[in-house]
């Protein structure tokens, strides 16, 4: 039987030239839940998820996915296990059409079956509301639309675990609402790990929140637990929520 936690880390540490970006992070991610990772700028959130999906090599520590130690796996192998990752800085295929973008993403799992690849590629574009632009070049899209396409690239992989690094940054209000609906629709089937600055989005989507500060876990718990946590209020929420 699958355990409650889909992913966990033990003592995960990243050191850049003597400076600790992450220090001995022990972390557990519950299956089927939406977990938000919050913390001030420079808290090491991006580095942390980078180490989970293999983009950044850990200085030490271990990562377990579905009870399997994946610490020494290269990034593409981890992705193949069903972990999808969206970049903080938009990274789409700017020179290709939107359909080609999502097709590349879908093709990795679906392979030679062109019909299935195309169907999947179109389906995710529809899901994020970009289907009418399927034949436009991605680089010609507005910044917000490119962010949405970035999310679509993740969706097209039908991930088990979906890691999103600040997905709502630069989105308009209505786009943020659509995003919240999308995440809530995905939760349950897909485990979601979300780095998010917008506390409104966090409160509307997250089942669990983990707060990072100075590369360490400050607190973990449900949104209400975090909201009432003294240490968190002092360090972070006090300014961010009111802002």
């Amino acid at each position: 039987m699958a355990s409650v936690n889909i992913l966990s880390t033990k003592g995960l540490t990243k050191t850049y030239g003597g400076i600790d970006a992450n220090m001995d992070v022990d972390f557990e991610l519950q299956r089927g839940k939406v977990t938000a990772l919050i913390g001030p700028n420079g808290a090491g959130k991006s580095t942390f998820v980078g180490m989970i999906c293999g983009r950044i090599s850990a200085t030490r520590g271990e990562v377990f996915f579905e009870d399997q130690n994946i610490s020494s796996m290269p990034a593409h192998k981890r992705i193949q296990l069903g972990i999808a990752y969206t970049f903080q800085i938009t990274s789409v295929y700017a020179g290709l059409t939107l359909l080609e973008n999502t097709a590349i993403s879908a093709r990795r799992r679906l392979g030679k079956d062109n019909v299935a690849v195309n169907a999947k590629a179109l389906e995710v574009l529809e899901r994020v509301g970009l289907a009418d632009r399927a034949h436009q070049i991605a680089g010609d899209l507005s910044y917000g639309h490119q962010r949405v396409l970035e999310i679509a690239l993740g969706l097209a992989q039908d991930p088990v675990l979906f890691i999103l690094d600040e997905p709502t940054q630069g989105l308009a209000e209505t786009e943020i609402d659509d995003f919240v609906d999308l995440i809530n629709a995905l939760s349950g089937d897909t485990t979601i790990l979300l780095i998010e600055h917008n506390m409104d989005v966090v409160m509307r989507t997250a089942d669990q929140i983990t707060v990072l500060e100075f590369g360490k876990t400050l607190a973990s718990g449900t949104p209400s637990e975090i909201h009432n946590n003294q240490a968190v209020q002092a360090a972070y929420l006090g300014t961010a929520v009111d802002a």
Partner: peptide, 25 residues
Amino acid sequence: RSPFGRTLVAIRENEERTKMLGYDT
């Protein structure tokens, strides 16, 4: 036109993204 060739184009356009889509670049 094969999946292999499309992946090469994906690498040309954005290698990091292609790797993070699970391809062995």
